[in-house]
């Protein structure tokens, strides 16, 4: 029997889910491997049990916490999709400020009507089996994970920086073009898509394990941006991961 698969969204722009709908040629091949039982963006069906639950978005309220626990209970495998789900992503920038200030800024006088929590990675609340990183996650990366799960193998883990793929494509280094790029300490697997098109890496796939943060700040500031700006860039997607 094909695995029963569902998609759920939490606090996010839902861009990752939209990205999946754009599979076009590959969509039919994917549906050969899995049964889609719940996907708000594309269908109305509901189910009680999921072989694989894909979660998009970060956990930012008490009701999110309740709902993710419920999904976890009904799922064999739970996969975090995209940077919001994997580490809190851009949502976690709010965690750098006192939560009451954040509520006031967003909701003004009505702030007491809206319960809010610091933006959390799904894995800070329930057990996450696998993750697909990126903002948005790439189709290729998602497919690799899906095929791995269908074949019963471990999905790929990316322990190398974006620079590796960038170098293998023989891109001109953005540092040599006077830009500041987070490629050296950002987890690869994206095929260096941004630098390949002349856009510096913003770190959306998360920071590598055991990064040399001081060294990286030194690299960034020595290429012409202020320490404050360097820290902001590093925190953009990684407020929950990097202590500065």
């Amino acid at each position: 029997m094909k695995p029963q698969v569902a998609f759920f969204d939490f606090t996010s722009c839902e861009g990752c889910q939209l990205n999946k709908l754009n599979f076009e040629n590959d969509l039919l091949d994917i549906l050969k491997h899995v049964d889609l039982v719940e996907f708000r963006e594309a269908m109305d069906d509901k189910a009680d049990h999921y072989d694989i639950a894909f979660i998009e978005g970060s956990i930012t309220s008490p009701s999110c916490v309740e709902r993710i626990h419920d999904i976890r209970r009904r799922s064999d495998i739970l996969v975090a999709l995209g940077s919001c789900a994997v580490n809190g992503g851009v949502n976690a920038m709010k965690n750098l400020h006192p939560i009451d200030d954040v509520r006031e800024t967003v909701y003004g006088d009505d702030k007491y009507l809206f319960a809010t929590l610091p933006a959390m990675a799904v894995s800070s609340v329930v057990k996450v089996d696998y993750e697909v990183r990126g903002c948005p996650m790439t189709q290729q990366d998602f497919l690799k994970l899906l095929i791995a799960l269908v074949l019963g193998k471990q999905p790929p883990k990316y322990g190398s920086p974006v620079c590796v793929e960038c170098k293998l494509k023989e891109n001109e280094c953005l540092y040599n073009r006077g830009m500041v790029c987070l490629g050296p300490i950002t987890r690869g697997g994206c095929d260096a898509v941004c630098p390949s098109f002349g856009q510096f890496c913003t770190g959306c796939r998360g920071i590598l394990d055991n990064p040399n943060i001081d060294g990286m700040l030194e690299v960034m500031t020595s290429h012409g941006i202020s320490l404050d700006e360097a820290k902001k860039r590093m925190l953009l997607y990684n407020s929950n991961e990097v202590q500065l």
């Binding site: 170098k167 040399n212 001081d214």
Partner: peptide, 14 residues
């Protein structure tokens, strides 16, 4: 050297 190296691998890949 290690304190300055950010571990990107550029040296060896090129």
């Amino acid at each position: 050297v290690a304190s300055r190296c950010v571990g990107c691998g550029a040296c060896t890949l090129t």
